[in-house]
Amino acid sequence: GTLHLNGVTVKVPSLEKAIKAAKKFAKKYNLEVQVHGNTVHVH
């Protein structure tokens, strides 16, 4: 999967790991997580 954090793109081995990391990051910075196919966006 691919993880987008505020314009930074990170390749992640699995989508589940990407979503987990995204949710952790989003919670910390009070951001929103959106999943588009195998790409996770945090903004």
Rank of each mutant, 00 (worst) to 15 (best):
A18F: 07
I19W: 05
I19N: 01
G1R: 02
K17P: 03
K27W: 05
K23E: 10
G1Q: 11
V40C: 05
E32G: 05
L15K: 01
Y29N: 05
K11A: 11
K11V: 11
V8N: 06
T39I: 13
H36L: 13
K11Q: 10
K23W: 09
A26V: 04
H41Y: 15
H41P: 03
L31V: 10
A21P: 00
V12S: 03
H43Q: 08
V12I: 08
N6A: 09
I19M: 06
K11W: 15
V33P: 01
L15P: 01
K11I: 11
E32K: 11
I19H: 00
T39A: 10
T9M: 12
V33F: 12
H41C: 15
A21F: 13
H36S: 08
K11N: 10
L31K: 02
H36K: 09
N38Y: 09
G7N: 09
L3V: 08
V33G: 00
K20D: 09
K11E: 10
N30M: 08
K20R: 10
H36Y: 10
N38W: 15
T39V: 13
K20E: 12
K11G: 06
F25N: 01
V42R: 03
L31I: 07
E32Y: 09
A18H: 00
A21Y: 14
K11D: 07
V33D: 00
F25P: 00
E32L: 12
T9Y: 13
K20A: 13
L15Q: 00
E16G: 10
K20V: 08
L3R: 01
K23S: 04
K24S: 06
V35E: 03
V42F: 13
Q34T: 14
K24R: 12
K28H: 05
G37S: 05
N30P: 04
G7K: 07
L5S: 03
V33A: 01
G7M: 08
L5K: 03
T39S: 11
A21L: 15
A22K: 00
K28P: 01
T39W: 09
A26G: 04
I19G: 00
G7E: 03
N6R: 04
V40A: 04
L5Y: 15
K17Q: 12
V8S: 05
Y29A: 03
